Computed example of a mutant assay.
Amino acid sequence: MKGTLGFEPLSAVRCPKKRKRIWLLRAAGSGQRVAGIGQRSLKWGRFSGQFQAALNELTASTGLKTMTEKIAEAGRDKQKKKAVTARQVADYLKGHPDFFVGRDDLLPDLTLPHQRGDAISLVERQVALLRERALDYRHQLVCLADNARDNEKLFERMRLLVLALLESKDLEQLIEVVNDSLNHEFGIEFHSLILFSEKPMSLPVRIEHTDVVVDALGSIMTSGKAICGQITQAELDFLFQEQAENVGSVAIAPLNYALSEPQQLGILALGSKDKDHFKASMGTLFISYLGDILSRILARQLRS
């Protein structure tokens, strides 16, 4: 029977006080003996105290270690093995000189100084510039991917709107589809649809004379092109009326159709509280497309 502390039992005697068996132990690999106990608690008064003292003295003199010490040392050794030193990395690279072959993606993240005194070499400067450009290109690529996803969502909403407009049976249903889609599908904060007519029309939409609109909006109407950005307060007041004070930027599409009579059918204005939401530098592809579709469907509905 071997104990867990590295001792071998020599013989057993009985404890006169507790009537328990006491083992005479010898350190494994040595000739020293010490009285000890078996698998019971060490709280046996004089016997346990003598045993513990002798055990401490024996472990100190023989260099033996307890299981707790062995476990702690094993843990430290394991951590040392896990930690990779710079020397180990250098030795590995020396033994594998072709390590970076086929791993070009690692090179931009490495720092390889190539200084000569206080000056920086031209090669290192070129590498730094190339790295900065690579980061810029990555950022631009991320922005392009985000814009592509946004455009895809916008296209899908536009497709559903166009299909709903084509299925409209009359002007009332068409106006309802436009209002519902702009409010819920596109999340437009403010919008204004104005139709031009010299005669009164019983429709849930604003009706104005063409001359009145041209006088109020000027070049916005005469250009016949969609625009984005900011307009004058007077133009905002005409388009959005009581909501004009809350509008910071707009996107406007004149509703013109060359094959209709009259050619100017109305105007569609979208507004946002954010002054930078609709910018003059923005493209007008989608708002122009919506204006073209709406103009043709309006012309057909007005003729029927």
Rank of each mutant, 00 (worst) to 15 (best):
L55S: 07
G3P: 03
T232C: 01
K65L: 15
T232E: 11
A74N: 03
W23S: 06
A74V: 00
T85F: 01
A253F: 02
Q126H: 13
R138T: 07
E167T: 06
V178T: 10
S295Y: 08
F47N: 11
R46Y: 10
G6D: 10
G63T: 05
D146K: 09
K78Y: 05
S223L: 04
T222Y: 06
F47M: 10
L195G: 09
K43L: 10
Y289V: 01
A86L: 13
K70G: 05
H114L: 13
P9E: 14
L141M: 12
L160E: 13
K81V: 00
R296A: 12
S304G: 15
G266K: 04
S30H: 13
V127D: 15
G63Q: 08
G31P: 07
E245I: 00
E57V: 00
Q230T: 06
S192A: 00
Q140T: 04
E245Y: 08
A72P: 07
S181F: 01
M67F: 12
T210Q: 15
D105S: 10
D104T: 04
R133I: 03
A280T: 14
E69L: 11
G3Q: 06
A251K: 02
T222L: 15
Q301Y: 09
P254G: 07
R14A: 02
P97H: 05
N179A: 05
I297D: 13
F100R: 05
C143Q: 15
F7K: 01
Q230V: 02
I297F: 11
S249C: 04
L259K: 14
F190M: 00
M1Q: 04
S295K: 07
M158P: 05
E152V: 03
L265K: 08
K279Y: 04
A164E: 15
Q39R: 08
G29Y: 02
F99R: 03
S168E: 10
G6V: 01
E185R: 06
R157N: 12
C15S: 15
W44I: 01
D109S: 14
R296G: 13
K82E: 09
E8F: 02
L236E: 03
S223M: 05
A28V: 04
M221P: 05
N256S: 09
L195C: 09
V247I: 04
K81E: 06
S197A: 08
T111I: 15
V177E: 14
G218C: 01
E124K: 05
I22Q: 15
N256D: 13
S249M: 04
G283H: 12
R87C: 01
C228E: 11
R14Q: 11
S295M: 10
R19H: 14
K78W: 02
Q243Y: 04
T62E: 09
Q173I: 10
K17F: 06
E185I: 00
E189N: 02
S181A: 11
H184I: 05
W44N: 11
L42Q: 14
F190R: 00
L239M: 01
E57W: 07
K70Q: 15
S223V: 00
L174E: 12
L141N: 12
E73H: 03
I297P: 09
V212I: 11
L268V: 02
D276P: 02
G3M: 07
I297Q: 15
